[in-house]
Write a protein that binds this DNA or RNA. Structure first.
Length: 281
DNA sequence: AGTGTCGCCTGAATGC
DNA sequence: TGCATTCAGGCGACAC
């Protein structure tokens, strides 16, 4: 799926269209995605102004004027596309949700694999709901620093890679950016989280922030499914140091030249991890 | 309670 | 060409 940078780009695309606009129509072309839609979903959102669009971790939050909030997750293959008018929009396969706004804009949610979802609840319940009650700090916010990060790692027996994917440790990091941040800090993804020193936690926290904000500036990573709300592509995938680069040279050392292979791929808790075994200790 | 494995889906790429 | 297998930005239900 879109990880934090991709979701942030989608959120920035939605914000100017949704703000000061009214959801005039909502069409659900399927009974549910990952979860069934809440009962009366369309009735609750129809003819309601949008108050704000926010992001938390990999979720987009659309706050409505009737004290309800849409909690939107893009799963692995979710895409949001915005058309400036109904005439511009032509339905394609897997267009599951179609929102029409007062200005005529059409916002479409397309999700091939249907791992995403749109939940809907009272705004006052959002913070304590199951999606967010245990979620860790925003990596680009003020509550994420080396000390708190170190504290949340020091009792985890799992690998540092698995810990980074755990949304309770830090919000929004997925498989690509976990690999890239560990590489940037020269930390072996197989190390137990509890062996990470305070100094390394500082470095890794800083790498996470750098990798995520660089990716946002690059418009995110476009692999198979991801594109911006206007259909254009991100280009951070061209800046990967390790992700999806198995067997290719490590950008920062000469491990490929003295008989050892370059970037390695291993599997950790069922997911691919890419790293340089020479540089990452 | 913490941790690892599997399944949810579709489609693209790869292997025989 | 065709069919089977593997794999993919995530997450949650399970089993231990």
């Amino acid at each position: 799926m879109p990880e934090l940078p991709e979701v942030e780009i989608v959120k920035r695309g939605l914000e100017p269209v949704f703000m000061n606009n009214i959801l005039e129509d909502c069409r659900l072309n399927i009974n549910g995605l990952r979860y069934p839609f809440v009962e009366n979903f369309t009735d609750i959102v129809k003819n309601i102004p949008v108050d704000a669009v926010n992001r938390r971790g990999k979720y987009i939050l659309v706050h409505l004027g009737n004290d309800h909030t849409i909690i939107w997750h893009l799963g692995m293959s979710g895409r949001v596309k915005i058309y400036s008018s109904a005439q511009q929009y032509e339905a394609v396969k897997h267009d599951h949700v179609v929102l029409r706004l007062k200005t005529g804009h059409v916002v479409v949610y397309n999700d091939t694999r249907r791992f995403g979802f749109l939940d809907l609840m009272k705004t006052k319940d959002v913070e304590t709901c199951r999606h967010f009650s245990k979620m860790g700090p925003e990596p680009l916010g003020n509550h994420f620093d080396g000390e708190s990060f170190y504290q949340s790692l020091r009792n985890r027996k799992t690998s540092i890679k698995a810990a980074l994917l755990d949304q309770r440790v830090v919000a929004g990091v997925g498989n690509i950016y976990a690999c890239e941040a560990l590489y940037m800090s020269r930390i072996d993804p197989r190390r137990a989280a509890l062996t990470i020193s305070r100094k390394q936690a500082d470095s890794l926290a800083s790498s996470i922030r750098t990798v995520l904000s660089t990716a946002i500036d690059a418009g995110g990573s476009s692999l198979k499914d991801y594109a911006h709300t206007d259909g254009s592509l991100g280009y951070f995938q061209h800046m990967f140091s390790v992700y999806d680069r198995e067997g290719r040279p490590c950008p920062d050392c000469h491990c490929n030249n003295d008989g050892k292979c370059g970037i390695k791929r291993i599997v950790q808790s069922g997911r691919s991890t890419f790293f340089c075994a020479t540089l990452q200790k």
